[in-house]
Design a protein around this nucleic acid. Structure first.
Length: 161
DNA sequence: GCCAACGTTGGC
DNA sequence: GCCAACGTTGGC
C-alpha cells in the first residue's frame, strides 16, 4: 500500500492509537476492489513511500479490519469528497491498517527493480500508478530478506492469502 | 521540472 | 461505443 510520506508516513501510522488508521481516500476502482474483494484481516502489508527520494518500502503492517465505507467521500470539506457518494451507497471503501514494525533497512524501488525475483511485482512495473497492488508470499519474504528484517510473528505468511 | 503512463470525462 | 482531451500519479 502506497503513501506519500509528506502526507502520511509509516511513522505517522506507528504513532496512531493502536498503530491503526483507516486507509481512506482511495479513489481508484481497481485499488478499491483490492481492499473490498481480496483483503482479509491479518493479511501482511508492505507500507511503501511514494513520491520521495528514493521511493522505498518503509515498514510492515497488517490488514486490521474488513472493508467498510470510506466516509471521507461524503465530506464536502475532504479532498477525497465524491459528490456521487451517498449514505446509502458511499461508493468507496477502506480497510484499517495496523503498523507492525519498520524495516531494518528500507528497500528502495531501484533495489527491487534490480532483483529478478521481484520482476513480476506490479509495484516495479513501469508506469504502474495503482496505490494498492498485490504481493505474493514469496515476494514479501524476498523484500524482508533485502530489508534484513525477520518476519514478525504477527504476520503469518503461509496462513491466509 | 519533465514526461510517460494511465484513468476519467464527455462530445459525437 | 469510440476516442480525443484532459487530469493525475509518480519515477527520474
Amino acid at each position: 500500500m502506497k503513501s506519500e510520506p509528506d502526507v502520511f508516513s509509516f511513522d505517522d501510522l506507528m504513532s496512531r492509537p493502536e498503530r491503526t488508521e483507516g486507509w481512506d481516500g482511495v479513489r481508484n476502482y481497481q485499488a478499491r476492489n483490492f481492499m473490498r474483494d481480496d483483503m482479509r484481516v491479518g493479511d501482511p502489508v508492505l507500507f511503501y513511500h511514494s513520491n520521495t527520494k528514493p521511493p522505498h518500502v518503509a515498514g510492515l503492517a497488517r490488514v486490521a479490519s474488513a472493508p467498510r465505507p470510506d466516509r471521507s467521500a461524503l465530506d464536502p470539506r475532504s479532498e477525497a469528497f465524491d459528490e456521487k457518494a451517498t449514505e446509502e451507497d458511499p461508493r468507496w471503501v477502506l480497510v484499517d491498517v495496523q503498523g507492525i514494525a519498520s524495516l531494518e533497512r528500507p528497500v528502495a524501488l531501484a533495489q527491487m527493480r534490480d532483483n529478478p525475483r521481484l520482476a513480476d511485482m506490479p509495484l516495479v512495473r513501469r508506469g504502474n500508478r495503482l496505490s494498492i497492488v498485490p504481493v505474493t508470499d514469496e515476494e514479501f519474504e524476498e523484500v524482508l530478506r533485502m530489508a534484513e528484517t525477520p518476519c514478525p510473528p504477527e504476520l503469518p505468511l503461509s496462513a491466509g492469502r
